[in-house]
């Protein structure tokens, strides 16, 4: 089919769906006036039952913790798949030089850039760690902080040479961190079972409200998520950057055809 035919199909679908969607939109609860009591009950109960001030973290890591374990594993699956795909023919070996697109200018790094990058990378790294640590108290947490820490690695690439980046950021270590984080989450879910509690039951002391270590098991789960996300995104960025390395004896198979 060509583009015109596809657009005709879309228009037909639109003609049928537009009245249905209109009916649906008009029947929706009015914006800003939710019907659900679920959130209100969480807001009312969680600070009392768990001594925690960030309700989103309470939902993520405790009340609906098994959801988050599932999402965590999605991350694992997506990253494992990406690594597998990118490494497939490239192999495990690493290159020392960055590649370049012919015809595009490559300005050399000035000292100021290097300094700035080192500075920002450090700040970003620390900020990410801070965010992971304070996940149960203020906005942020393992997911956001982990991504920030991982992206601070990229600044190393920007500021230092490609070789330095390769030497500092170690693939297998990051992969191990990723796996360990996920494993820790699974253990946090499984260990309470041995004591006769429900899976993921918050059996640790809850701490005091607004304290760094408030929320009991949530703190541990949050750190586990942080480790896993740092590992996952670190591996991800590493493998993507590796795609732009200098071609040596690139074994890309030009398959049977063309």
């Amino acid at each position: 089919m060509n583009t015109t035919a596809r657009i005709v199909l879309l228009v037909i679908a639109l003609v049928v769906l537009a009245p249905a969607a209109g009916m649906l939109i008009l029947a929706m609860p009015a914006f800003g006036h939710p019907l659900s009591q679920y959130g209100d009950v969480v807001n009312a109960l969680a600070p009392r039952l768990r001594n925690i001030s960030n309700m989103v973290a309470a939902v993520n890591f405790d009340i609906r913790g098994i959801d988050t374990l599932g999402e965590e594993c999605m991350l694992l699956a997506a990253v494992t798949g990406t690594v597998m795909l990118l490494r497939g023919h490239r192999g495990e070996d690493m290159s020392e030089r960055a590649g370049r697109v012919p015809g595009r200018k490559q300005p050399s790094r000035s000292d100021a850039t290097v300094l700035l990058c080192r500075f920002i990378a450090t700040v970003l790294f620390l900020f990410g760690i801070y965010m992971v640590l304070h996940g149960t108290v203020t906005p942020g947490g393992g997911f956001q902080g982990g991504v920030i820490v991982a992206s601070s690695f990229v600044l190393l690439y920007l500021g230092e040479s490609y070789r330095a980046w390769r030497r500092i950021v170690l693939g297998p270590a990051l992969a191990a961190l990723e796996g360990t984080g996920a494993l820790a989450y699974v253990l946090a879910a499984a260990l309470p079972l041995l004591g006769g509690y429900a899976a993921l039951q918050n059996v640790l002391p809850l701490g005091t409200w607004k304290d760094l270590f408030s929320g009991g098991l949530m703190v541990a789960v949050n750190y586990a998520v942080g480790c896993a996300v740092i590992g996952s995104f670190g591996v991800l960025l590493l493998e993507f950057m590796e795609e732009t390395r200098a071609p040596e004896n690139d074994p890309v198979p030009d398959e049977e055809d063309e």
Binding site: M55, E71, L75, T82, V229, L236
Partner: peptide
């Protein structure tokens, strides 16, 4: 306060979506 449940649902999904985009791009 607003509903924390939907926020929790969206938050994790955003992070996963980045990984999924990476998979597609790969």
């Amino acid at each position: 306060a607003v509903d924390p449940v939907v926020q929790a649902l969206v938050l994790t999904d955003i992070v996963v979506s980045a990984a999924m985009t990476a998979l597609l791009l790969a």
